[in-house]
Write a protein that binds this DNA or RNA. Structure first.
Lengths: 193, 193
DNA sequence: AATCAATTAGACCAATCTATCTAATTGCAA
DNA sequence: TTGCAATTAGATAGATTGGTCTAATTGATT
């Protein structure tokens, strides 16, 4: 056996490039160059660009949910405060990097959702992971009486995720911070019982 | 002078294809074929594909805002009811077409926002038209006391638009109707004073 | 140290994409 | 009807893309 390059490093670079510039705007040439590997290596690890894309999606899903779970386990805060804190941190990060990032799932859904069922399955699967993580926290908050029960946990989770994803799109379109701020304001309102 | 093909017909076809399959997934070949024109004609009307893309964006913006304005002028309903009615109609349309459409501005922002400033400008410009139309209605509703004032008109508009765009993304990813329903439920909640 | 399967390098190929170019055609104006 | 500028058609060019191929290299195992 002979392992020199780390598959995970390539996935991480791909994730970065796809988030920044989209799937079609990122050529295999650029991925290979940025990851510092050769064409041969790339096709040794992945069947083709689509296979790579799907694996990047799942990598992003795990990478994100791991971080979200970590933040939502901070028992020093109540569930509502944890959610608000999580989004505060995310938004701070976007601001720090001049709003250049976005959600990979949103981008991939838009770009490939209708084209390739493998991609739309991967997007849905990973969105559902996000939902699961958030929903658990919201259920806990509702049971504890610190999160509004005007909408059921699943519905409130979908709403919150929609609002966040949509705010990121407006942010990326050039409005930058304002939609994020509106999101933060409204998030507090809809979570409060 | 010699006009055979209508520029607007080509723009409409382009809008349709870009909404369905995205910008990079739609070749000039397909646009030409679907619009029933020749390559020569296309490049007679438009400088290049990017120029076409920008014009499609603006065409979509005008086409959408015209329809929204029409719906939001229905004085038989109060401003809050008008907004809810508008989204009900939109969502009904998505359902009827099996959730295959999406918002062109969302797609273009994701696909080209970081790549080409002309595109991000066009996206922001058209998003701002949407905001203007909705904000006028929300302001009217707040003044009349039928729309919540917990968030200022601009903020509430951005929130609502984010929520809607985000719900469309989840819809497109394969969740179909559920996120739209969650949106409708929450929309009524956040608008109510 | 020798062996050998796995990995790597990057030239190369085929397909595709955008855009151009020229000849044929169109339809208005005189 | 004729003349002419504008439009159209579609072959073709040039660039870029994703993917393959083979020879060289690597490193674990014996």
């Amino acid at each position: 056996m002979n392992i020199k390059h780390n598959k995970e490093d390539i996935l991480r670079k791909g994730m970065e490039l796809f988030r920044l510039n989209g799937y079609h705007n990122t050529g295999t040439k650029e991925i290979i160059k940025e990851a510092g590997i050769s064409r041969g290596s790339f096709y040794n690890f992945f069947i083709d660009k689509d296979d790579f894309g799907i694996q990047v999606l799942d990598y992003y899903g795990v990478w994100s949910t791991d971080y979200m779970k970590e933040l939502l386990n901070d028992t020093k805060l109540n569930p509502k405060q944890r959610l608000i804190h999580l989004f505060d941190l995310f938004i701070e990060g976007y601001k720090r990097d001049h709003y250049k990032w976005g959600c990979l799932l949103v981008g991939m859904t838009q770009e490939l959702g209708q084209i390739n069922p493998s991609f739309s399955n991967a997007c849905e699967r990973n969105f559902e992971s996000f939902v699961a993580v958030f929903q658990a926290c919201i259920e806990e908050g509702q049971a504890a009486g610190v999160i509004s029960e005007k909408q059921d946990a699943r519905g409130l989770t979908l709403t919150m995720l929609s609002m966040y994803n949509g705010a990121l799109v407006l942010m990326k379109s050039g409005m930058h911070h304002e939609p994020l701020e509106a999101f933060q304001t409204q998030l507090a309102l809809i979570l409060t019982p």
